[in-house]
Structure formats: structure tokens, C-alpha cells
Design a protein around this nucleic acid. Structure first.
Length: 204
DNA sequence: GCCAACGTTGGC
DNA sequence: GCCAACGTTGGC
């Protein structure tokens, strides 16, 4: 069960605005709950405090039940996205920090947010000495391998489409990858999900 | 290895 | 509560 996210420890606790956000969204919009996500992970060995951060899509497949904890997330925004996830939600598995970053496959959420045990482990690179066992600060979900995409969809292609769609109002005009860069867990709208999935059938 | 973007920290 | 300094992410 290697650590997966490269998101670093963050020490403050801006957790108070969640409530107002919830209230607001209930009143303002009747938009559907986000049920599609993007999970970033590093497919190549990188040492952090003596621990290998690598966790590729194949590594996920090799886990028992092809399922793993998504531990190590230390960013409040990414954590809050995980807290929104429900069993059955789907996600893209994205390979970051590699020669050709991009989306390699699909996963599904099989367990909803629960405390990330690595925050209490002093030997873990993502240990958080300020987290209180009675009120754990960091959560994780469990995700399961679904399948590889028919072709790898590189970041460069998504970026080109994003640029194009910004002008034309196309489906990837607001893709979180480019508007909320650097979050290790990101929301994907239904429209984005369908469009990106359709790309795997293109031959080019 | 560089460095832009962005989140966090802490002095005031 | 502002914001400069600092740390991290991650593409290139």
C-alpha cells in the first residue's frame, strides 16, 4: 500500500467555509452532484523521505482486489472533493510527473471518505503531527481499477482542446486540470467526462 | 533542473 | 486581515 499522492503537507486549517458553500449550492443551483473525478498519481519512482512515491495504474491493478486507499492527500480542497465522493463514482487515472503525462485508465470509488491512517504515522512522508486522532484532518477513499483506455490521452492533447474550447465554448473550456492546476484530486463534469471518453476512439 | 503558478505561513 | 516570503507541484 504505497503512498500515492504527492500533495505536500499543509499546516493550516481553513475548514470553516465548507458549511457556507453547502448552504449556498443548495439555494442557488439544482445542479447535479459531481460524480466524476480525476486522480493524479506518479508512475515513476521518486524518493521522498526514503519512501518511493510511485503508484502507477498497473500498480493499482496489482493490488489485492485491484483496489487501493488513496492516501497521502494533504490539500484541503482535494480532501473536500474526496469527501464528496460516493460509492460508484467514476474517475480518470492520470499519470503525472512523467515524460508524457496523461490519462491512462478508469477507476471507480468503492469506499467513501474515512481517515487516512498515514497522517498518524511518523515514518510516513505525509505524517501530520498536528492532526488529532479524535478529529482526523485528512481522509482517503478506496478506488478500484476498472480498465485501461483504448489509447493513452496525453496532457498535450487535452491542453490543445482546452485552448480551442475556451474560444468556442466547447466541452473542455473549464477543465479543472487547467483552471485549478496542481490539485491531485479534481472534479470532472459530466460533459467533460463524456467528451474525454469519446477521444479514446479517435485513431489519429 | 528550471521555474510559473498557487497554497500556506507568519509578521505586522 | 493583509500580503510578502516561502514551499510545493509538476510541466517542460
Amino acid at each position: 500500500m504505497p503512498p500515492k499522492s504527492k500533495v505536500s503537507k499543509r499546516k493550516s486549517e481553513p475548514e470553516t467555509k465548507e458549511k457556507t458553500d453547502d448552504k449556498k449550492s443548495k439555494i442557488e443551483e439544482s445542479t447535479e452532484r459531481i460524480s466524476k473525478w480525476l486522480f493524479k498519481s506518479e508512475p515513476e519512482t521518486r524518493m521522498e523521505k526514503g519512501v518511493d512515491m510511485r503508484f502507477s495504474f498497473d500498480d493499482l491493478k496489482a493490488e489485492k482486489n485491484e483496489t487501493s486507499h488513496w492516501d497521502g492527500v494533504r490539500n484541503y480542497s482535494a480532501r473536500n472533493f474526496m469527501r464528496e465522493m460516493k460509492v460508484g463514482d467514476e474517475g480518470f487515472f492520470y499519470h503525472s510527473n512523467t515524460k508524457i503525462p496523461g490519462i491512462i485508465g478508469l477507476v471507480t470509488v468503492v469506499r467513501e471518505a474515512y481517515p487516512d491512517h498515514t497522517q498518524f504515522d511518523p515514518k510516513d512522508p505525509h505524517y501530520d503531527p498536528k492532526s488529532d486522532k479524535a478529529a482526523p484532518r485528512w481522509d482517503m477513499v478506496d478506488v478500484k481499477y476498472v480498465r485501461k483506455l483504448k489509447r493513452y490521452i496525453p496532457l498535450s492533447e487535452l491542453k490543445e482542446l482546452h485552448q480551442k474550447h475556451k474560444g468556442s465554448g466547447g466541452p473542455l473550456r473549464n477543465l479543472a486540470m487547467f483552471t485549478k492546476a496542481r490539485l491531485s484530486v479534481q472534479p470532472i463534469t459530466e460533459e467533460e467526462w463524456q467528451f474525454i471518453l469519446s477521444l479514446e476512439n479517435e485513431t489519429d
